[in-house]
Amino acid sequence: MEIDAAATLSNDQLRLERARQVLRTEAKALLAVSEKIGGSFLKAADALLACPGNVIVTGMGKSGHVAQKIAATLCSTGTVAFFLHPAEAIHGDLGRVTQNDTVLALSDSGETDEVKQILTPLRESGAVLIGITGRSGSTLARMSDITLCYGPVSEACSLGLAPTTSSTVMMAVGDALSIVLMSDRAFGDEDFGRFHPGGSLGRQLRSVGEMMRDGEQLRVAPADRTIREVFVETCRPGRRTGAVMLTDPGGKLVGLCTDSDLVRQIEQRNSLDRPISEIMTKQPTMLRREQRVRDAIAILKDRHFSEIPVVDDEGRPIGMIDITDVMDLLPTPMAA
């Protein structure tokens, strides 16, 4: 008697296997589509790059949600784009589209009623129409100036009905266009930072000068003083850095001494009347104010530092990046 393999699996194992099958199905489709893109993809990218107006992305249902995501990705990577809802378009929003625009229309079947209703008006507007669809013989494919056809795909839904693989493929094609355009435009760190000022990503792309502690929060002292003199003179209430920056007679940074260094001297009952130059970290790692915060984070992570001094072009201390100010940007294990 043959035993059904599925019957021997626990319910949790079955659920996990279903989940894995979804991922395998979608991954297989993405790999297949990656081998299909060619001349039409380049034509579409060229049309988007040359667009003198705006990129309009449209789609209905799940394709509409994907279209919104593609529009957002295009915007954040250097291509001005807007989402146009097909149902709203046929009630007046077609007025947003001009002959200078390029339209990306999404429909897996290429026969979505709401999308079909706006195809003729879009062509009459003079806008370039790029269709993204799974069917090369569909209405959308026939009426588009450029068609990106990814071909038939197997939906990962157990019924083969819910848009899963098809929506994943459409989103991936949109990502591919966005990133190619990003490269074509030489869209770099400065541009990305300008478009992403908020959240942890935005903070990492800010300059060190924007986030460093400065002014009265800094503790700076001559390197020829004793340990006791330095820590007495730089002691102050309120928010301050966890290290003293030590300078030569010309004001250039030559060393760093942390509160932890002082604690170790006290625990070891060492004399505090010795020159602080004997215990300071000589020629410490330094940052410039124009560097990115992410550069500072990489140093804090890789070298297990708690503070990094910031100097000007002459090597004089002007600020300090303190680990407590960027704790939420650090990798979880280190932040913990």
Rank of each mutant, 00 (worst) to 15 (best):
M1C: 10
A7R: 15
A7Y: 09
D12S: 15
Q13D: 14
R15P: 00
E17N: 11
R20P: 02
L23C: 11
L23E: 04
E26A: 04
A29G: 06
A29C: 07
L30D: 05
A32G: 09
A32W: 03
A32C: 07
S34A: 15
E35Y: 04
E35F: 03
G38P: 03
G38W: 08
G39Q: 12
G39N: 11
G39R: 10
K43V: 05
K43N: 14
L49K: 09
P52H: 09
G61T: 07
H65W: 07
V66Y: 04
A67S: 13
A67D: 04
I70P: 01
A71M: 03
A72V: 02
S76I: 00
G78N: 03
T79Q: 00
V80F: 09
L84I: 03
H85W: 03
E88Q: 13
E88R: 07
I90W: 00
H91L: 09
T98W: 01
D101S: 01
T102G: 00
T102A: 07
A105H: 06
A105Q: 07
K116S: 14
K116C: 15
Q117W: 08
Q117G: 02
L122R: 00
L122E: 01
I130K: 06
S136T: 13
L140R: 07
A141D: 06
A141Y: 03
A141N: 06
M143A: 10
M143I: 08
S144R: 01
I146D: 09
T147N: 08
Y150E: 04
S154C: 12
L159Y: 12
G160M: 09
S166I: 06
M170A: 15
M171A: 12
V173Y: 01
G188L: 05
G188K: 03
G188T: 04
E190T: 12
P197W: 10
L201E: 07
G202C: 04
R206A: 14
S207Q: 15
D214W: 08
E216T: 14
E216K: 15
L218F: 01
V220K: 05
P222D: 06
R225I: 10
R240W: 05
T241F: 08
T241R: 07
G242V: 02
L246H: 00
D248V: 05
P249E: 12
G250W: 07
G251H: 11
L256N: 04
T258W: 09
T258A: 14
D261T: 13
L262D: 10
R264Q: 15
R264Y: 14
N270H: 15
T285P: 00
M286G: 06
M286L: 13
R288M: 12
R288V: 11
Q291H: 08
R292M: 14
R292E: 12
D295Q: 06
A296L: 08
I299Y: 05
I299P: 00
K301Y: 06
H304N: 15
S306R: 13
P309V: 01
V311L: 11
R316K: 15
I318G: 03
I321D: 03
D322P: 02
I323M: 14
T324E: 10
D328G: 02
L329N: 11
T332G: 07
T332P: 08
P333F: 10
M334P: 02
